[in-house]
Design a binder for these strands. Structure first.
Length: 481
RNA sequence: GGGGCUGUGGGGUAGCCUGGUAGCCUUAGAGGUUUGGGACCUCUCGACCCCGGUUCAAAUCCGGGCAGCCCCA
């Protein structure tokens, strides 16, 4: 390996030191940067533009299922935050507080929202009076702050992150759950369909559910470092918050009832997941559907032919303008440009030199493939969408393969520990118990219950792998960020 | 939550043990010759994480802080 060359690109290897590799990817592909606040990163245009795309596409899906956007304040007065008991207990340790403005101490300290239930629901209790006011399906795109004390990891564990939060209100449980599943389908169009992130959708145990929820379901994704990423979520809150914040309505019979509520989120963690899942030792790999610039054109210039090559390159650029191509006309060597745009994750590279011009073709290199191919100029417009589609599909299928190949099943404790050490997701029989889950963590070095078996495989006669008592269900466990 | 390691121009590093001139590679900027996988030459800009201590003198030694990485819970 040529030391000189590698300094500009990534030095760490994905399969040797994942964290270091990911950090270098963040910095060198100009996705993010550290700041003076530990655990708070800059989203640079390379990653923020993708976040904007997520917002744009998610909003389109949301519109189809009646979600409306709005915005609530960043601050939550302490007395509001503490209204729902489980909720406040779950978040209290990580809340950042504002206690002072200028030189004046505040009468009541203000929480910086770790999530917005406590500031949104008092308004809901004012707004909702009649069954005609329902359903209320409100969403906001915003930032939240959770002051974690674990080691921060860019995108995956940051103290401030960006997300959307849907807070929806329905008359009945059935209505709430039907809509909740629609939201997950909408999210999946973004995460699976556009970001090429496969996942397993499953319900959390009592111990792992959202603070204040009746049940929580999340989509889980596996990264090559063995960590499971908890993705988009669906919390069904039942009447819990309605009772705490007094959200009631009169139904068609004039009877007063509590509302049923859901919350949902997608966060900037999915950006990190997408970057980490698909990228390689050369740099960033972005699924074409999420790439801002889908093509880079590199002119291969020989002395005396500059004009011809550049003119052709510009012509091709114009022809392919709907793919938002970059044409690099700088005088750097082609090799340097190749490396640069591989680091930046441009899906398709087009090479144009005198030879290509003569044969009326161009050289094509897909970011995720080794082989270069040639395509006739007149076929370009027709074939590029196919190539992009192929790349999108390959990335998704590779990720899906990784997810599927890293699952194991056992009812023996020693084997479970071995599998966890081998960075696997493991399916095990377990008892529904907080204590059991705590012991599971300490015996496996931190693996937690991810979700209850979505297929509901029979647990008849199985013993809990931790306590030895009769098991309640099969669960999947693994280490998470 | 516990332990270990590290912090030097934009990136990668040497120097630190044994205190005294911050060296190298690269990027960036300028000019020239080049251009089919990180070209070459010349010139230029640019750094000792922060606070304190020891000392005639601190990148170097000591203390504290902050930040990052690794391992364990």
């Amino acid at each position: 390996m040529d030391e000189k060359k590698s300094q500009e690109g990534l030095i760490a290897k994905k399969n040797e030191n994942f964290t270091e590799w990911f950090t270098q990817l963040m910095i060198k592909s100009k996705l993010a940067d550290y700041t003076d606040i530990s655990g708070c990163i800059v989203l640079r245009p390379a990653s923020y533009s993708i976040w904007e795309k997520i917002i744009e596409e998610t909003n389109k899906e949301f519109k189809k299922i009646g979600v409306e956007n709005g915005y609530f304040p960043l601050f939550i007065p302490e007395k509001l935050l503490s209204k729902e008991e489980d909720h406040v207990k779950g978040f209290a340790p990580e809340v950042a507080w504002v206690t002072q403005a200028g030189k004046t101490k505040l009468n009541e300290r203000l929480a910086v929202r770790p999530t917005s239930e406590a500031i949104i629901y008092p308004s809901y209790s004012k707004w909702i009076r009649s069954w005609r006011d329902l359903p209320l399906i409100f969403n906001q795109w915003c930032n939240v702050v959770r002051w974690e004390f674990n080691n921060p990891v860019p995108f995956f564990r940051t103290r401030e992150f960006l997300w959307n939060e849907i807070h929806s209100v329905f008359s009945t449980k059935e209505e709430a759950i039907i809509h909740g599943e629609k939201v997950i389908k909408a999210y999946n169009k973004i995460t699976e369909g556009l970001m090429a992130i496969p996942g397993i959708y499953g319900q959390k145990t009592e111990n792992e559910k959202f603070a204040g929820a009746v049940f929580t379901k999340k989509v889980h994704t596996y990264l090559q470092n063995g960590r499971v990423i908890e993705g988009v979520c669906f919390h069904y809150d039942g009447e819990n918050f309605a009772k705490a914040y007094g959200i009631k309505f009169q139904d068609k019979n004039g009877e007063e009832k509590y509302t049923h509520q859901n919350t949902h989120a997608i966060t900037t963690r999915m950006l990190g997941t997408m970057f980490a899942l698909h990228s390689d030792d050369k740099g960033l790999v972005i699924p074409p559907k999420m790439a801002t610039n889908k093509i880079v054109i590199i002119p291969l210039i020989f002395k005396g032919k500059e004009k011809e090559v550049l003119e052709k390159s510009r012509e091709i650029k114009k022809m392919l303008s709907k793919f938002n191509p970059i044409l690099d006309e700088t005088e750097n060597s082609p090799g340097r440009k190749f490396a640069q745009y591989e680091l930046n994750g441009i899906p398709i590279r087009i090479e144009i030199g005198p030879k290509e011009i003569e044969k009326k073709e161009v050289g094509i290199k897909l970011r995720n493939e080794k082989e270069k191919i040639k395509i006739k100029e007149h076929d370009l417009l027709k074939k590029i969408p196919d190539l992009l589609e192929k790349m999108q599909k390959t990335l998704y299928e590779n990720a899906k393969k990784i997810l599927e190949e890293n699952q194991k099943k056992t009812d023996k404790k020693s084997e479970m520990i071995k599998f966890v050490n081998e960075k696997q997701i493991v399916k095990i029989p377990l008892k529904n118990s907080v204590e059991v889950e705590e012991n599971l963590k300490s015996e496996t070095g931190g693996a937690k219950v991810l979700f209850i078996d979505p297929k509901n495989e029979s647990i008849e006669g199985k013993k809990c792998i931790i306590s030895g008592e009769p098991a309640d269900y099969w669960v999947y466990i693994g280490k998470t960020y």
